[in-house]
Amino acid sequence: MADEGDVLTDLNPGAGANGADTAPTAGIISQYVKDLSVENPKAPESFQWNEAPELDVQFNIGANPVNDEVTEVELKISCTAKTAQGTAYIVELSYCGLVGMRNMPDDQKHMFSYAEAPRFLFPFARAVIADAVRNAGFAPLMLDPIDFQGLYIQQLQQRGEAGFSGEGSITGGEAN
């Protein structure tokens, strides 16, 4: 046990009177699968195909305010595997997180909603997709990591914005 002199007693020295919480804070409150669709349109023929499929992975990030301090951040990921014989599988996932943000300027809320929150949610969405593809009868699809902050900055530059518009979405894709 620590001596009394070694214990931190005032963790927020800038707090207002009567313990008012004025420091900026943000975090994930909850996360969940909002929608999941798995299609295996050519089964059982697709299990006989020897050709490696071409993968098309697309994603979109959206943010919907729930109230003044909570925003639902939605990470939509669509994965399609095709060969010359046809489509092997299609997986579409809408993975969401409730994000709490308090005492933050609007530009920081926007950045957190479209860059940081998706970065926190992505590993869980990646696992859901890997399991869905495996459960469809194929080798699990392990998506490559995504640089959400880099994409956020790129989208702002493409729109010619120094700041943000307040609403919108971030999209991207990769083909393997």
Rank of each mutant, 00 (worst) to 15 (best):
Y95K: 05
E51H: 09
F120S: 11
L121T: 12
I28P: 02
I28H: 04
G27W: 10
G97F: 12
V91S: 02
C79W: 01
L121E: 07
R134N: 09
S94W: 01
K42V: 10
F47Y: 15
N67S: 03
P123D: 12
E54D: 14
S30Q: 13
V70D: 07
Q58W: 01
S113M: 07
E39D: 15
R119T: 14
I61S: 04
E92I: 00
A117Y: 07
A63S: 10
A26K: 00
Y114T: 07
T71S: 06
L121N: 08
R134K: 13
N103F: 11
D106M: 12
E116R: 10
W49V: 09
N60V: 06
A43V: 08
A117H: 13
Y95D: 04
M111S: 14
T80K: 10
Q58H: 10
K34R: 14
M101Q: 15
P53E: 06
M101G: 06
D131W: 03
P65K: 08
N135S: 11
E45H: 08
A115T: 14
V38I: 13
P53Q: 09
A125F: 06
R102Y: 08
L75K: 01
V73W: 02
P123G: 12
V128K: 03
A132N: 07
E69K: 02
A52D: 15
I77A: 03
D56S: 13
R102Q: 15
S78M: 02
F122L: 13
S30G: 09
S46R: 04
I28Y: 05
A127S: 14
P41E: 13
M101T: 11
V57A: 09
D106P: 09
L75Q: 05
K109I: 15
F112K: 07
Q58C: 01
F59Q: 03
F120E: 14
E54K: 12
G100E: 09
S78F: 00
M101N: 05
V91D: 02
C79F: 02
A115Y: 10
E74V: 09
A127D: 10
L55D: 04
P65E: 14
E69H: 01
A117T: 15
D68W: 03
P53F: 06
N64P: 00
L55W: 05
E69T: 11
G27I: 07
N103T: 09
V70Q: 01
M111R: 14
V57G: 02
D68G: 05
W49A: 06
D68R: 03
A88V: 10
N135K: 07
E54W: 00
I61G: 05
N60E: 15
H110T: 12
